[in-house]
Write a protein that binds this DNA or RNA. Sequence first.
DNA 1: ATATATTGATAGTAAAACTATTATTTTTGC
DNA 2: GCAAAAATAATAGTTTTACTATCAATATAT
Lengths: 224, 224
Amino acid sequence: MEVLMRSLKMGINDELYIKDPESSDLGKKIVEQSILLLDEVGFEQFTFKKLGTRIKSNESSIYRYFENKNKLLLYLASWHWAWMECRMVFETNGIPDPKEKLKRAIEILTQNVEYDSTVSHINESVLNKVIIDEYSKSLLVREVSKEKRDGYCIIYMRLVERLCKMIIAVDKGYPYPNSLASTVLEGTLYQYFLKAHFPALTDCDGDITPTDYFTDLVFRAIKK
Amino acid sequence: MEVLMRSLKMGINDELYIKDPESSDLGKKIVEQSILLLDEVGFEQFTFKKLGTRIKSNESSIYRYFENKNKLLLYLASWHWAWMECRMVFETNGIPDPKEKLKRAIEILTQNVEYDSTVSHINESVLNKVIIDEYSKSLLVREVSKEKRDGYCIIYMRLVERLCKMIIAVDKGYPYPNSLASTVLEGTLYQYFLKAHFPALTDCDGDITPTDYFTDLVFRAIKK
DNA sequence: ATATATTGATAGTAAAACTATTATTTTTGC
DNA sequence: GCAAAAATAATAGTTTTACTATCAATATAT
């Protein structure tokens, strides 16, 4: 798997960047360090100036890669969802039983992402934390046309669709497969968010995981 | 109900404002028009300067009511959740059967809020739209201590707790009542959000409502 | 070795997010 | 009805952010 991943170039919408950050050392450093800086200071306090200082490069150089910090966050989110999709497809491939397949998919999608040095310059575990706290801020709802927005989020949309199809494969009569799939993905981020910031509002703690909760929920929902 | 509501002063954390906006005409106008402006331009483009122009008042006057636009949004969110709590308690009060009670609560909490002139200066229907698009941006996670954050969100937390208790009243053995309750509240906003901006990711449309989806989901989850 | 692309350094602009000061208006107590 | 107090308006100023523009320095490619 590691070998496969390393050589895999994520198909991220090229309108999210000006110059492909994968194409140079500076670009990779921008991506690498933006994740760490976002984790440290949050999206609101994050600026290209601070990032420039941190990577000992210039603010204006960063602007040559990304239009603004919103696009950068969307780029990172795309990367994250591409990574999740990749892992999900890989790990469920070849499971013949639809129930087992769905179970494994939910497991992958709701698990806390562990550090994995597969893609050297991206710390996927820290990126996961960033997505939990900031993902909702990346959805540029006003600034952008519907078509562009869909383009920016295409990987996420595809992931919901995949999960939706797995749900249908287990119970083709279930009337809300899209909603259930999107609830699992968004709800997972939300439960981790609550665990970190409002623990009284979730049962997920050291013992119970979002995986436990959502696996139970989905199978109770679709089991006739 | 209307009479009760009109006289009801929502118990909103007084650290969310500098001067109580309910205490003056200007204050009410700030709240009234901020909802409409937020709906029109979104949180990012919203400024106190624009709001000042709109209400033919001065930027600096608005700063005497609210520290900044984040606090204003949190104030509005508190108002919204207080209103939901109020309606939920009122509408479920006196229902003896726990199942019926829970069903009615979910109905209230997941329904689209209709315009209601009960509180003259607040258009709760537009506020509901604003909350759907912007609520997640109101959770000041970095800027503020855990205690303050809890204080700001106390009404929302209480609402989750109430719903949680209603779930337990139907099935005291269900292992994830807090998570299910928070999923219903957050998930409802999310399903409406998707309906408006990414309709392919939800089954909720003109026909199917979030109420249908979540009523079904909750009762499948807790029915043994 | 030279043309080309990339990056760095510096400077500058426009707007946002406030703060401070003073003037004017409105409210309230008496 | 009037003086004192409170609230609001007008104006101006500060700092920070989010960029853009220009040009110099450096790396790379042929």
